[in-house]
């Protein structure tokens, strides 16, 4: 059985030629949650965008492949790729305040993929979205669907976005720091909600976060990223029990209590960073784009 998501040896560059992703490989098996953890700027979102086909125009994939349920995205035309991603993948974005169109009502923003991309009848899409709104504990679906985004709180909007992501029964969801922009109290609820829906629907999730506390809570597998390079990959319990890489250990040490989702990362020890810089310099020196 092929992996839900299989990224192999993916490198991406900026116009300057500098690599932002350095031969990244990772897989997400069906129904599995893989955390992608690293500091801000490590390239986590870049990987998510590459998977969803929405890299900024300045970023170019120069080697490697992304396979979604076995289909190589790079081998498809732009239109085929768009359709495939629209049908099989979804995004739970970082900031619920900017991820809904301010001038469109919430309902159509939730149903438009079902109706216009997947070709569902309008009433079926409507029922489906209401069911999902119920699953994310929104008790007034009529009001919410008729509302404009600014009439809803941040937590409500993130529920809406989660419901919309699950509504199309995607095989893979990219959740890009879905709780970072929320209030502390809301963060826990949203995290629990995503975990619950993930289990009920059996959806694979690539869960991007900078927070080891979140990693411990939601994921079975974890990939640690530094400067666009995978530094460690493990089962989540194994990673916490026995971190292999000095950077992972430093991250853990720098997190006051990694079960506390509010804790922010403290600066990593300088000697570890120097070691990483050397590793990356070596990797870049040996690297030649194949394509």
């Amino acid at each position: 059985m092929s992996a839900c998501l299989d990224i192999s040896n993916l490198s991406a560059t900026l116009p300057s030629g500098q690599r932002v992703l350095r031969s990244v490989s990772l897989t997400v098996q069906p129904g599995e949650v893989r955390a992608l953890v690293g500091e801000s700027g490590a390239g986590k979102s870049m990987i998510g965008k590459a998977v969803l086909g929405v890299l900024p125009p300045s970023v170019r994939i120069v080697e490697g492949a992304i396979r979604l349920e076995g289909t190589d995205l790079g081998a498809l035309s732009a239109k085929e790729r768009r359709r495939l991603i629209g049908a099989k993948a979804a995004l739970i974005p970082q900031d619920p305040l900017t991820a809904l169109n301010p001038s469109r009502r919430v309902g159509p923003q939730m149903t438009d993929r079902l109706v216009h991309i997947l070709g569902w009848a309008a009433d079926k899409a409507d029922r489906r979205v209401r069911q999902l709104l119920d699953e994310v504990h929104i008790r007034e679906p009529d009001r919410v669907m008729k509302a404009y985004p600014h009439e809803l709180s941040g937590g409500m909007r993130q529920r809406v976005l989660i419901a919309a992501a699950f509504a199309s029964e995607p095989r893979l969801i990219v959740a890009d720091e879905p709780t970072t922009a929320l209030d502390v109290t809301v963060q826990k609820q949203i995290l629990r909600l995503i975990a619950q829906l993930q289990q009920e629907h059996g959806t694979a999730i690539l869960f991007v976060t900078h927070d080891l506390g979140v990693v411990a809570k939601v994921s079975q597998k974890v990939t640690v990223l530094y400067a666009g390079k995978v530094v460690e990959e493990a089962d989540t319990p194994a990673l916490f029990a026995n971190p292999q890489h000095a950077y992972t250990r430093a991250l853990m040490a720098a997190t006051p209590k990694y079960t506390d989702p509010q804790a922010s990362l403290k600066p990593v020890d300088e000697s570890v960073l120097a070691g990483l810089a050397a590793e990356i310099a070596v990797a870049d020196h040996d690297w030649r784009p194949h394509g």
Binding site: G53, R82, G86, N101, D112
Partner: peptide
């Protein structure tokens, strides 16, 4: 077109023209 809701519309599978007309133009 750099805003998150436009990215989200692209992920949903809408073409660039649709994205501009439905999501970006009014705002």
């Amino acid at each position: 077109m750099t805003l998150d809701y436009v990215t989200l519309a692209r992920v949903k599978g809408f073409s660039e023209t649709k994205v501009i007309l439905r999501e970006a133009l009014k705002n």
